[in-house]
Structure formats: structure tokens, C-alpha cells
């Protein structure tokens, strides 16, 4: 086993990174922090939920790890695990969308870019959805839309709060306008949750952009984000290309959104659970 692995030049056989997502490939025992460039014992990093013990940099964690972090004893009951996209457009780019899906399903052991589950957070039953950014950039198609809509239905039926942890590049291009309409579908369901006076806490993590930000991620009773997360409507490259302006430092990061009034709080990963627990206690009182 190697101690370090350098970034290799792009491998032709590897699928292109979705939505420009960059991933540092390190499988050694040590890992270099993207924030402070210090070398960290990988197990220390994992024990700290991938937050750098030295500088507090938040590396991305996957949907499953997120649920383990937030749910009591790391336990939860997953729902709708078998929902699969039917490729409504018969979309083909570098390879057919159906093959891309199958590959992603094998690689992530998920049927699509979201885990929806029920469980307890600090003793309170909740419905929770956790997005998987590795799955086609965490993009939202029919399956993500339907799983969230069903989670909202369950929250209304059972009278429980809803938590959605976003990590997504936005609507899924490969399902065209069907993806687009998921924004309206979920938002309409959130209207019903709102009418039922049930709490919805939106947790925005790196990255949350496009149609996900422009629908459910911004509609929480509380919108909270992890430090340093990229959050926006248009992606930074799109903005630079469109307006031909250089973007300011820290643009579209959590702290920028907090300053501009779009977030209730920027909450470090290790404080997320107590923060949500306090909020739910307030809402339930």
C-alpha cells in the first residue's frame, strides 16, 4: 500500500467528472488537506467526519455517511430504494444514459442520487433525504424528485419534520424537461408541508447549485449550510462566461450567502446535529 498517491493525468476510460466536480484521488494512509495543505493521517480525518482537525476544512462526505452522522446511533430505515430512472428521453451523449446510470448504480450501490429514510434525530422521528454528489453530480431527475415528494407525503401523513441535505449540481440534463418539472413538483409538495405546519430544515452542502438551489434547497423554514460550501443558482464558470467578469473571492460560498441574507446560519459539520435538534425542539414545542 502506498503512502501517497499523486493525481494522475485524466484516464480516457474513466467517466468524465460530472459537472466539473474535482476529486482528489488519495488511497494512501495519509491525505493532504485541501484547505491547509497539511498531511493528515487518514483515519484521523475519517474519525472527524472528514473535517480537517488542523484547519477545519470540510471535505465532502457521501450520502450514507451523512445519515450516520445525523441519525441516532447511525440507524435509519431507507425508503424507495428500488426506484430507478426509466430514461424517458432515450438520451445518449458520450454513452447512453441508461449505461451511465447502470455504471453509477454499481459504483455507488445506490439506485439514484438520493437516499431517503426515516429515523430519529435526538430522539425525534423525522423524514430525511440525503443527496449523493458522486451520482451523476448529485443531479435531480425523476427518481430524486419522486423520492423527495414521497418523503414529504410521509412527513405529512405521520406529522413528522423533514430534513433534506442537498449536494447537487442541479437538474439532470439527461432527463430534460422531466427533470425541470421536478423542481415544481417538489416545491408544490413543500407548499403542502408548509400548510400542514410541519418543519422543514434544508441543509446545504458542497456543492448545491442550479435547479436544486432554485427549488427545495432554498425553501427551508431554516436554511443552514456547512462552511465553505459552493451554493448558487448559476455555476461560477457559467457566470464568468456569460458576463465576462472575474468573480470576487469567496463568491457563492456559504459565508457569502449568509452575508447576503440567504442562509440562517453556517454550521460546522460536527455541530449540525445539535443545531437541528435544537431547532426541532423549538418547532415541536
Amino acid at each position: 500500500m502506498s503512502w501517497f498517491r499523486r493525481d494522475k493525468p485524466a484516464d480516457e476510460n474513466r467517466p468524465a467528472p460530472e459537472n466539473g466536480e474535482r476529486r482528489v484521488r488519495t488511497e494512501g494512509l495519509w491525505q493532504k488537506c485541501e484547505g491547509c495543505r497539511q498531511i493528515i493521517w487518514k483515519k484521523d480525518l475519517e474519525a472527524n467526519w472528514s473535517v480537517c482537525p488542523k484547519c477545519g476544512w470540510h471535505s465532502r462526505i457521501d450520502a450514507l455517511t451523512r445519515l450516520k452522522l445525523l441519525m441516532d446511533d447511525g440507524e435509519f430505515e431507507p425508503f424507495d430504494v428500488d426506484l430507478r430512472s426509466s430514461d424517458p428521453l432515450g438520451f445518449v451523449d458520450a454513452k447512453p444514459y441508461s449505461e451511465r446510470l447502470a455504471g453509477m448504480q454499481r459504483a455507488t450501490n445506490l439506485s439514484d442520487a438520493l437516499i431517503s429514510a426515516a429515523g430519529c434525530l435526538a430522539g425525534r422521528p423525522i423524514q430525511i433525504c440525503s443527496m449523493e454528489a458522486r451520482f451523476i453530480g448529485g443531479s435531480m431527475g425523476s427518481v430524486v424528485g419522486e423520492k423527495i415528494a414521497r418523503a414529504i407525503d410521509r412527513a405529512i401523513d405521520l406529522g413528522t419534520p423533514l430534513v433534506i441535505v442537498s449536494a447537487s449540481g442541479g437538474a439532470r440534463m439527461q432527463e430534460g424537461a422531466v427533470s425541470l418539472m421536478q423542481m415544481a413538483k417538489i416545491s408544490a409538495s413543500l407548499m403542502r408541508l408548509d400548510e400542514a405546519r410541519l418543519p422543514y430544515i434544508s441543509v446545504l452542502t458542497d456543492p448545491t447549485t442550479g435547479g436544486v438551489t432554485a427549488s427545495f434547497a432554498m425553501l427551508g423554514d431554516l436554511n443552514i449550510a456547512e462552511p465553505g460550501a459552493l451554493i448558487g443558482f448559476a455555476g461560477p464558470r457559467v457566470i464568468e462566461q456569460t458576463i465576462r467578469q472575474k468573480l470576487p473571492e469567496g463568491f457563492q460560498r456559504s459565508e457569502f450567502l449568509l452575508k447576503h441574507g440567504m442562509l440562517d446560519a453556517v454550521v460546522p459539520r460536527l455541530e449540525l446535529k445539535p443545531y437541528i435538534a435544537r431547532a426541532l425542539k423549538f418547532f415541536a414545542a
Binding site: L83, S86, P88, S142, V143, E146, V178, K185, S189, R192
Partner: peptide, 13 residues
Amino acid sequence: RYAKFRNMGNFFA
């Protein structure tokens, strides 16, 4: 209006 949008989506259950 809700029912109309709620039904949009194509998937295998």
C-alpha cells in the same frame, strides 16, 4: 395544480 405536477416523472418502481 398540485396533482398535475405531482404526477410528473418517469421511473420504474
